[in-house]
Amino acid sequence: MLNSSPMSVGNVVSAGFRLYRSRLKAYLGISTRATLWAMLPWALLIPLLVVAFVPFALSQGENPTSLILLLLIFPWVALAIYCGARSSLNSALIARLAYGELSGQPEDSRTAFRQIRPRMWNLLLVHIAVGMVMFGINFGLSIAQQFLIILPAIAFRDAPAIAGIFAVVAYLGTLVVYFWFWAHFYIPEVAIAMEGDTNAFDMVGRSWNISKGSANRILLILSVAALITFPLYGLVAIPVLPALVGTASLIQVGDVSAIGWFLIAIGVGILLLLLVNLFTLPFWQTLKAVVYYDLRTRREGVDLKFRNSITDEPRD
């Protein structure tokens, strides 16, 4: 499985898919667990809201709902955080297994899980860290964008067409810059899954360093991969979108019974999307592993090794 030189964009995507297929069954099992963990807090929210609002409906006058909500909201948030961590642990497990195959040191799921189980909170932390960094970048870019739109609008007050062109360029430009940053922070999750107990924020820095000069390539890889998964989402849209539009138009003309059908269509749509996600998540994770391995090949030369027999340190 060892590959001994930097890969082209197309080959990274193909390799990601080959890895995905090679252990599809195991990956789908892990992906199901990740999805279920992610869904659990939302599924619990429904009975929770019922518990909170039923007394309100019964008592009519007094209102204990806010008190009950307040009592329930903290445990729910704690549970949601824990579930998020469990979900990202399972996603990272897929990336770790794929990376193991790539580097010629495959593991079975159980061993790999034991290895990364202690890193669960670190994995969640790294997602939060990346989220914060991207939030900051987004904030800065939004301000820059507003300047780039407002200043030409004032300067070209008499020529709104030119100001419009400036606005479009500003929108697209900031979007590209945003994605460029995003590509730099794409892989810290795999880095933690592979390299362990380091500080989550250090890994964000490492992600930035190792992806220097490769952001455009990473973006292209992700675009091509998205192109491949796109038809699956199309399959969801084909039955669901017409159903939504159809029932919505019925509601508009006053057909109250259509509301139920509309909700059912939304429910079915969400379920189908979850199902598609369940199948695509492992692909995104194996792809992430390939991107990380390829970056390490380029930037750290991890593939450059002599024959096994002499990899011990020499006896001086």
């Binding site: 499985m1 590959n3 082209s8 964009v9 197309g10 080959n11 990274v12 995507v13 193909s14 390799a15 990601g16 898919f17 080959r18 890895l19 790539l102 292209l220 890889i221 091509v224 991969a225 192109l227 491949i228």
Partner: peptide, 27 residues
């Protein structure tokens, strides 16, 4: 890592090729 295929030419020579792969074909 990459899918390969063996083909036999009319002269009965066996050749091995690496298939293009979905990534390259999509690009």
């Amino acid at each position: 890592l990459f899918n390969s295929v063996k083909v036999r030419t009319p002269e009965s020579v066996d050749l091995e090729f690496t298939l293009a792969g979905i990534g390259n074909r999509a690009i």
